[in-house]
Design a protein around this nucleic acid. Structure first.
Length: 768
DNA sequence: TCATGACTAACTGTT
DNA sequence: TTAGTCATGA
């Protein structure tokens, strides 16, 4: 009788029917979260809540879009605002820019732009920073902003050497941004948080306007986002958060797991709904995921279950090389597609880092299988695109020095480094934006007359573009191309690269044209620029097109596919190199794999390559320690035949158990692969290792002998261990006691080696 | 002083 | 692989 509620389970219905008061939906993967959220919005509307009072915030454009699409059939033509945090913040800031010391035509700098600014600032400050890379400073500033620490506050705090440098750089960087009327991504949130804190009227207005706020992926909110949400939920505390601590994968961006873990403290009368039934994956996939995530210590226990079929075993494949991995996977896809059992769109391939996509792309290309790759902001990061946009930015915001630097000599027009330096000096002296300083080029004595003429021509060109800046966006960009000479130069170039650039620019013009059509009327340049820098290619991702999807595991969050391949499950990649020294980072990597695994509905394959090309060098890899945590007997273990060098025998263990699964006969094209025994030690319960992150050797270093003895005691026969050089291995023999205790270890890749435990860097492979 | 080509070092993830 | 730096020739 009620189309909204009838198709829901009791738990889902409880969440949907909740109207007033805080709500926390703990939603496991595949538990119908989006459905609950969209149905709840529809329900609110049905209860008489005005569409304008509802605000749905997500992290990605993709998620926002997905929500909008799913809401359409429930409430056709509704105008509930669904937006990413950053987009929401940008809109808000445009309306209140002066309150935070900005002009409303402010520019949003992406990561690349902000790094350039930082470089300039570093040059200017002339700091001697021997071991501190700009990268580290950038991320320190970013972290500070995400934690709402302003430049002034930062400078006041004592700290380590890095902090002391940052304390100098951060304020200078911030001054530079404000002088350029620019914000970086983090500023969008920081400024809004401060706005809400410092302007009670604004806060109150927004709180009242958005009485029903819904937040997706709450586990990924950082302090700034948290403060924004809290500030808008005081008079109308109807904040509805959905999230899953096990899917928190943005710690590096400042996401604070405490926000979700302590939601109950923040909102004492919160209603908590748990969605634990999984509608997506097979039992086998879910068990694998569950076994993996159970190794994390910092989590809220959830009992995921599904009533779906048992499903096919999860495959774990060892390929000989990254090429074989790519070709093997693509061959599998091709086979299924040819047999009309599946369509390209049923498949997704996930990887930890973007660089891994290349081999897969090549293989797909070779086989002529259509694919789409989600690659962050790749398109808008291209040099030629950024160049064109920078002209437009400069016209829109003449104080945008970063844009000025970008275009002043692009394409080259005889204004070299030295001339730009002199212009900059002049600008600093007079306290002018660079474009203004350039207008006075004739007055800058140090500037050669030739350079001065060129600068004057440049200014005239910018003004020419400025004349059309209030027209259609396509016209603006077209003028940029002709006035700057870019079009001519590229068109006359022989090189294929330049032809590609031209094609990319054409694509940008198409995007501009579409934007013009969607936003009739004039003066939309600013909106276009904002859209462009806050989108990523994900927006182009079409669930409807019939293509294989390639993306990072991060990008995969929130999506699902019938068949999922996760490649390169190797030490150093998954978990990533940089996470290995920190338990919480390592747990985040584990959650990342958990997210990847739980995207799969019907079939899942994890794989690694025994050899992988790395920075141009072929290197032997070590299988991911996470693989050791998966229930081996649930899986089909496959060794790709070409990888004959794989030393499976070394790795077989006495209590080795054959996989239950036999390959069905019709899987013939798989004959390049054969099922082998356990590549991976069965995950029998091992003694709980409390000090597992310290090796025995480390403990001897600064502790008494019996501690060392106790430490060597934790190594037991059959235990999986890792060695920094030899990688993953298992203990096959032990002798001696205390500090003299010795172990013989069989490594996956390096054969058998003997160690004095207290002196070796060996450590248990499974860390708890 | 500028442009170009060679060399080198770094390389996670996303808004 | 690529962006940034360095050296060289114009």
């Amino acid at each position: 009788m009620n189309a909204l509620l009838d198709p829901l389970t009791p738990a889902q219905r409880e969440a949907v029917q909740h109207v007033d008061g805080p709500l926390l939906i703990l939603a496991g993967p595949g538990s119908g979260k989006t459905r609950v959220v969209t149905h709840r919005i529809a329900y609110l509307l049905e209860q008489g809540v005005a569409a304008g009072q509802i605000l749905a915030l997500t992290f990605t454009n993709k998620a926002a879009e997905e929500m909008a699409i799913r809401l359409q059939p429930l409430v056709p033509g509704t105008s509930v605002w669904m937006s990413t945090f950053h987009r929401f913040a940008a809109k808000l800031l445009r309306a209140h820019a002066p309150l935070v010391g900005l002009s409303e035509n402010f520019t949003i700098y992406d990561t690349q732009d902000s790094r350039h600014v930082l470089r300039r600032v570093l040059d200017e400050l002339d700091l001697d920073t021997p071991h501190v890379t700009p990268e580290r400073i950038v991320s320190a500033i970013s972290r500070a902003k995400n934690n709402l620490v302003t430049a002034e506050e930062y400078a006041r705090r004592p700290g380590d050497p890095l902090s002391r440098i940052v304390a100098k750089v951060y304020p200078a960087y911030q001054r530079r941004l404000l002088a350029s009327a620019a914000v970086d991504f983090d500023d969008l949130l920081l400024h809004v948080a401060q706005l809400l804190r410092n302007c009670p009227e604004v806060r109150q207005t927004l709180d009242e306007r958005y009485q029903y706020i819904l937040v997706d992926e709450y586990q990924d909110t950082n302090r700034a986002q948290y403060v924004i949400l809290r500030a808008m939920s005081i008079d109308y505390p109807n904040l509805a958060a959905t999230g899953d601590p096990d899917q928190s994968i943005y710690g590096w961006r400042g996401a604070d797991l405490n926000n979700i873990l302590e939601f109950e403290h923040d909102f004492p009368d919160v209603r908590i709904v748990r969605l634990e039934r999984n509608y997506r994956s097979t039992q086998r996939i879910l068990r694998i995921a569950d076994a993996l995530i159970a190794h994390n210590t910092r989590r809220k226990q959830k009992d995921l279950y599904t009533e779906n079929d048992e499903g096919a075993p999860v495959r774990l494949v060892a390929y000989g090389s990254h090429k074989e991995e790519a070709q093997g996977i693509v061959a599998r896809i091709a086979k299924e597609v040819d047999a009309k059992r599946r369509r390209p769109r049923d498949f997704a391939i996930f990887y930890r880092v973007n660089a891994l996509s290349r081999a897969i792309e090549d293989a797909l290309h070779e086989q002529g299988i259509p694919y789409q790759m989600i690659h962050g902001q790749e398109f808008y990061q291209r040099k030629e695109i950024k160049d064109v946009l920078a002209y437009a930015e400069l016209v829109n915001n003449p104080r945008d020095d970063a844009a000025f630097f970008r275009v002043i000599n692009t394409p080259t027009r005889g204004i070299g480094k030295k001339s730009v330096e002199r212009l900059t000096e002049h600008a600093t002296r007079r306290g002018l934006p660079l474009l203004e300083a350039a207008r006075e080029a004739g007055l800058v004595e140090s500037l050669s007359s030739r350079a001065a003429v060129n600068v004057a021509k440049f200014v005239a060109m910018i003004d020419r573009i400025g004349e059309v800046s209030h027209g259609a966006v396509e016209e603006v960009l077209g003028t940029v191309l002709s006035a700057s000479g870019m079009r001519e130069i590229l068109a006359n170039s022989e090189s294929e690269e330049d032809q590609n650039r031209l094609a990319n620019i054409e694509e940008l013009l198409t995007a501009a044209r579409e934007f013009d059509t969607q936003n009739p009327g004039d003066s939309h340049l600013e909106a276009f620029l904002e859209q462009v820098c806050l989108v990523n290619e994900t927006d182009d991702w079409e669930a409807e097109t019939d293509k294989v999807t390639l993306m990072t595991v991060h990008a995969a969050k929130g999506l699902e596919f019938p068949v999922v391949f996760i490649i390169a499950t190797e030490e150093g990649l998954m978990p990533h190199e940089r996470s290995k020294n920190d338990l919480s980072d390592l747990e985040e990597e584990r959650r990342l794999l958990f997210v990847g695994i739980t995207r799969a509905a019907e079939q899942l394959q994890l794989s690694y390559a025994v050899y992988r090309e790395f920075r141009g060098q072929r290197r032997r890899t070590v299988p991911s320690s996470f693989l050791m945590e998966l229930p081996r007997h649930e899986m089909e273990l496959v060794e790709s035949r070409a990888s004959s060098s794989f030393p499976a025998a070394d790795w077989e263990v006495p209590d080795y158990e054959r996989p239950h699964y036999e390959q069905p006969d019709d899987e013939q094209p798989d004959d390049a692969e054969k099922v082998v025994g356990s590549l991976i030690q069965k995950t029998t319960p091992e003694p709980l290792m409390t000090a597992a992150l310290t090796t025995a050797a480390e403990m001897v270093g600064d502790a008494v002998d019996d501690r060392a003895a106790a430490a060597t005691d934790r190594f037991v026969q059959g235990m999986a261990v890792t060695h920094p050089e030899h990688g993953l291995g298992k203990i096959v023999a032990l002798s001696g006691d205390g500090p003299r205790r010795k172990a013989t270890v069989a490594f996956v890749t390096a054969g058998e080696k003997k160690f004095v435990l207290s002196k070796s860097p060996l450590r248990p492979a499974r860390r708890r």
